[in-house]
Design a protein around this nucleic acid. Structure first.
Lengths: 223, 223
DNA sequence: ATCTCCCTCCGCCGCACGGGGGAGGCCGCC
DNA sequence: GGCGGCCTCCCCCGTGCGGCGGAGGGAGAT
């Protein structure tokens, strides 16, 4: 149950060393697999269409077609497109904004540590929210944010069975397992099973993290 | 620790029977106390200023001054004003909207059951968010919503000590007590103490409910 | 007909969590 | 000086939670 299919990641960066480094970091994670590399935006777009990775780490500055445009093209021309994390060196607000407008699911700085990178990939894969550098949070209120959140909620709904969604919803109401069982008219053991499934599918440790994920994904909305 | 000072509630409704009913319902709760009643808006405003209740249940339709205006006047003329829940018979969107504009913290229908009523009072007392009837949710994205949420976050910040806020913030990151302890550079026992304080002050049962409250209050914002 | 997924439920187990109660040091307020 | 709030930390204890493994039945796909 914990050994789901690994996350298939594609790297798009013009610097070979960066790609090597990313591959090393992500390859060390048992649940991730780098399925392809591209050195330019023009290379990346068809490769992504062919390989259909779960996640793309997309550099902003690339020859021929930059990362923002490549993101646009990928998202425009695919059904069930991958989640794209835009990677850049500088905290340039314009880039962040454009990346969001283009439909990127995440934004990451190259100076980020390995741990942060891995976390970001997992989080985006889990619910494709866009909440990494603080800079993004401020902008998230705009259109791009809403669209991405709705999108996230949809994919989350798709991944969870109906019963699991119901359980998650009740979890986000602060109910304990026994209370959820009473509400749904099933046994406590059944609820435990569903909760375990939700935790596994969301890739989280406990119910608190599940509730957080539900909020961050827009699966539930705060008042 | 669970026996904090009871919530001091004031009732403003022109129908005596309604007041009696509300008093009966709220009086049955060990943590609530009805400290006063008013039959008109004109009566209510000075009474609220004098008694300084935590919560006001304010009817919309009242003689002399209606509930909306009374709400405005109370909030305009007091420091540390009470949280006002506007009560009405009909799901009239205009009323909801006006109530929010006036600064009400909650909106409740008279047809609500006793359970929903006490829940609403507790929730508003806890974090004065505004999320009861589904009708409110739709409007909450507007200015009034933002303002109230900011307000809520402020009062929440005021109630929690600095350390407690830090702990709550880390809780909303999905961290366990031991991890929080590591981040803050203190012992696990200390974190447990802070967590217990947060739970008590928020009036919730466990860390999951605390995280939910934090989101609902706008203490943390989703991506 | 077989396979897979979902829903239902069972046991066992370890542990983090939360409740209760206590304690010492620090600071600011009255 | 005393009192209260905050931060720090300790004990014990019960239990809800989550991990692990198993099981049966029903629906739909191929």
């Amino acid at each position: 149950m914990s050994v789901q299919a690994p996350l298939r990641v594609l790297l798009a960066d013009d610097e070979r060393m960066v790609r090597t480094a990313l591959r090393a970091i992500l390859g060390a994670e048992p649940d991730m697999e780098v399925v392809g590399e591209a050195a330019t935006g023009a290379e990346a777009v068809p490769l992504i269409r062919e390989l259909r990775p779960d996640i793309v780490l997309m550099d902003v500055r690339m020859p021929e077609i930059d990362g923002i445009r490549a993101t646009e093209q990928v998202l425009a021309g695919m059904s069930g497109p991958p989640r794209i994390i835009v990677v850049t060196t500088f905290e340039n607000d314009a880039y962040v904004y454009e990346a969001l407008r283009a439909g990127a699911s995440g934004f990451l700085l190259k100076r980020s540590g390995a741990e942060e990178l891995v976390q970001a990939v997992r989080l985006v894969a889990r619910c494709d929210s866009l909440l990494f550098p603080a800079a993004v949070r401020a902008l998230a209120a705009s259109h791009a944010g809403r669209r991405a959140a709705d999108d996230a909620a949809r994919t989350l709904r798709a991944r969870l069975s109906e019963r699991e969604q119901a359980v998650l919803r009740l979890m986000t109401s602060g109910l304990a397992n026994a209370e959820i069982a009473a509400r749904l008219g099933v046994g406590p053991a059944t609820v435990k099973t569903h909760v375990a499934a939700v935790l596994a599918k969301l890739g989280v440790r406990d119910r608190t993290q599940a509730v957080i994920a539900a909020y961050e994904c827009g699966f539930v909305r705060p008042g």
